[in-house]
């Protein structure tokens, strides 16, 4: 684990030095994020011009969800997707062999290699939106709530990582996995609204299949004082469970790769 963080630090440093050379990318990212943010806010305003609450959430609280959503998609876009994408390319082009002959856990290695620096712009925007929303709500968050929020955020990220990793191991059997990644990305978009507003079947899907609920709604619940200790505990077990399952599936896929590839 510690080695993993060390490697992540070193890989990140090199990524950052490299990305710094392409400042145009930074401005493109800022423009793109601003556009997404503006459309999102307009849609939300339109919705709230018809109603005062949505699924029990006020406008300001929904803004908080939107902030968490931005924050989380920034994290996923900066840390998870670039790594998974690189991994799938490596499988396709046979470069995974170089990873597998390194004296390091292969899952750790493929997970820490890339950092899409400019996507962190979304994380900053998310934090700002969240801060504004909290001011609007006007309720002082306790230390406990902040702590619960941090934990929920971390667990949400681990859950998303596990789901995306599981989906990507399909690369060991088939080569067309990117469509599946796109699908996960689109479904994740549903996370900008609290999952409670969706019909039951969709809510269940968003909770257990593609757990947007845990990634966005639960952390937002923590900040707005809606989170019950039971939900937090359940989230914890679900996180551990998914992390475990995804590692099992990863090993299974790896075995298939080393068992049959030419």
């Amino acid at each position: 684990m510690l080695r993993g963080f060390q490697l992540f630090g070193l890989f990140s440093r090199i990524s950052i030095l490299n990305e710094m050379q392409y400042r145009a990318n930074f401005f493109i990212q800022v423009f793109q994020s601003a556009l997404t943010l503006t459309t999102g806010l307009i849609v939300m305003n339109v919705v709230f011009s018809y109603t005062q609450t949505l699924g029990g959430w006020t406008h300001a609280e929904l803004l908080a969800i939107y902030g968490v959503f931005f924050l989380m998609s920034g994290l996923v876009g900066a840390l998870i997707f670039p790594n998974i994408w690189a991994f799938m390319e490596d499988v396709r082009e046979g470069r995974l062999d170089f990873i597998l002959t390194k004296p390091e856990d292969a899952q750790v290695l493929i997970s820490v290699r890339q950092l899409a620096l400019w996507r962190l712009v979304d994380v900053i925007i998310g934090v700002v939106v969240l801060a504004i929303a909290l001011t609007q709500i006007g309720q002082q968050s306790s230390w406990l709530q902040a702590l619960a929020f941090g934990a929920a955020l971390l667990m949400g990220a681990v859950i998303l990582y596990s789901i995306i990793l599981i989906a990507s191991t399909a690369a060991f059997w088939s080569v067309r996995v990117w469509e599946m990644m796109e699908m996960i990305g689109s479904i994740f978009q549903a996370g900008r609204w609290p999952v409670g507003i969706y019909p039951d079947w969709l809510r269940l899907g968003l909770t257990y299949l593609i757990p947007v609920a845990f990634a966005v709604t639960v952390p937002a619940e923590a900040l707005t004082g809606r989170l019950t200790p039971q939900t937090l505990l359940f989230t914890f077990f679900f996180t551990v469970f998914l992390a475990f399952i995804s590692r099992k599936i990863w090993f299974y896929g790896l075995k298939n790769y080393t068992g049959a590839s030419a």
Partner: peptide, 26 residues
């Protein structure tokens, strides 16, 4: 393992940076 048809170096960065990564991994 060296494979002439495949590259383990990251093409976007200088080789010397990749060497630094190998130093950490090994």
């Amino acid at each position: 393992l060296v494979m002439g048809q495949r590259s383990q170096l990251n093409w976007d960065i200088p080789a010397i940076d990749s060497y630094d990564l190998y130093r950490a991994i090994y």
